[in-house]
Computed example of a mutant assay.
Amino acid sequence: MSSESRSLLGTGRPSTSPRVWSALLGAAHPGPALAVTLLAAAFAVSTGLAPGRAALVTAAVLTGQLSIGWGNDLLDARRDRAVGRTDKPLATGELPLPVARFACAGAIAATVVLSLACGLVAGAVHLGCVAAAWAYNLGIKATAWSWLPYALAFGGLPVFVTLAAPGSGAPSWWIVAAGALLGVGAHLLNTLPDLADDEATGVRGLPHRIGARAASVLAVAALTTASVVVAVGARQVPRPVVALVLVAVVALAGLALVARGRVPFRAAIGIAVLDVLLLVVAAG
């Protein structure tokens, strides 16, 4: 572990100024954090969790995502400075390291408390999901197994939400499988914009090893397979709705495979959105 990661949490409470708050938000990877949190919230509501329990689940996921985002930027601060990442507040100096360390430590503590408040088993599952994401940040992202933490975390998320309901069992296998496939697709799509910067600093995960074009195709394949898995498993969803979604997915997949530029990326995002909607509806 690097000296940067060893000093991740730091000591003492740092002071902040008003302008630091926007930088702190930017370092939390707000887009992915919000997307995963909203997915958990929607899944919690669709599965019939009581409002208080659904809010608790959502809060646990949010703090976990914040810790992952801040931890990522703390661990990557030197790499981001080396490649001139002006979109990274820690790399530009806009966000002081002590502030980020304090926020990250607080998010980790809150995640533990909130997760276990959802139940010991459910909490352990969620903490396992967060640990998988941290393992990615700490080095797995630079290996051919970079997809695995995403698969485990996204596959475990519906398990956590379902088990948070008192007396509830684990979700159906197809929900977990679809979540894992969605995670693999999310990893590939999330990595594509940063392939060059990652390569320049020695990070070579699966997408870097197979190349941008192959990674795009694999992302489309994973997301399309997730659609099929949900369509097969979600027998309670009206068949016309499932058929309509699958037609849209096939159309987007075809577009992603033949188009160039940013179109394949946007088409894959479209498939991911349809997967999430279908998964949430199917869980109800």
Score class of each variant (00 low, 15 high):
A100I: 06
K88E: 01
V125E: 03
G119Y: 13
V125P: 03
C118F: 06
V99N: 05
A103W: 00
R79A: 15
A100N: 04
E94V: 11
L114P: 09
R101Q: 15
L90I: 07
R101I: 04
V125G: 03
C129Y: 00
A117N: 05
S115I: 10
D87S: 12
P96L: 05
A91D: 07
L127D: 10
S115D: 07
D76S: 12
G106H: 03
L95V: 09
K88V: 04
G93F: 09
T92H: 13
R85I: 01
V125R: 00
D80T: 06
L95S: 06
L95A: 05
V113W: 13
C129I: 09
R79Q: 14
G84N: 11
A122V: 09
V99P: 02
C129K: 12
T86H: 14
T111H: 08
T111M: 07
G106A: 06
R78S: 14
A124L: 15
A103H: 05
T92E: 08
I108L: 14
A117G: 11
A109Y: 07
V83S: 04
P98D: 12
L75R: 14
R85Q: 10
V113T: 14
G93V: 10
G106M: 02
R101L: 06
G93Q: 13
A122D: 05
E94G: 09
A82G: 03
L114M: 14
L95I: 07
P96K: 02
A91F: 05
D80Y: 05
I108K: 00
L97N: 01
L75W: 10
V99H: 01
A77Y: 02
D80H: 11
P98Y: 12
G123M: 08
L97T: 13
P96A: 10
L97C: 03
R81C: 01
V113F: 13
A82C: 05
G123H: 09
D80L: 07
C129V: 15
V112R: 01
V99F: 06
V113I: 15
A107I: 02
C104T: 12
A107Q: 02
R85D: 00
L75A: 12
K88D: 00
V83T: 15
A107M: 06
A122I: 12
A124W: 06
I108P: 00
A77I: 13
G106S: 04
L120S: 14
A110W: 09
G119K: 10
D76W: 05
L95N: 01
R85F: 00
T111I: 05
A109T: 12
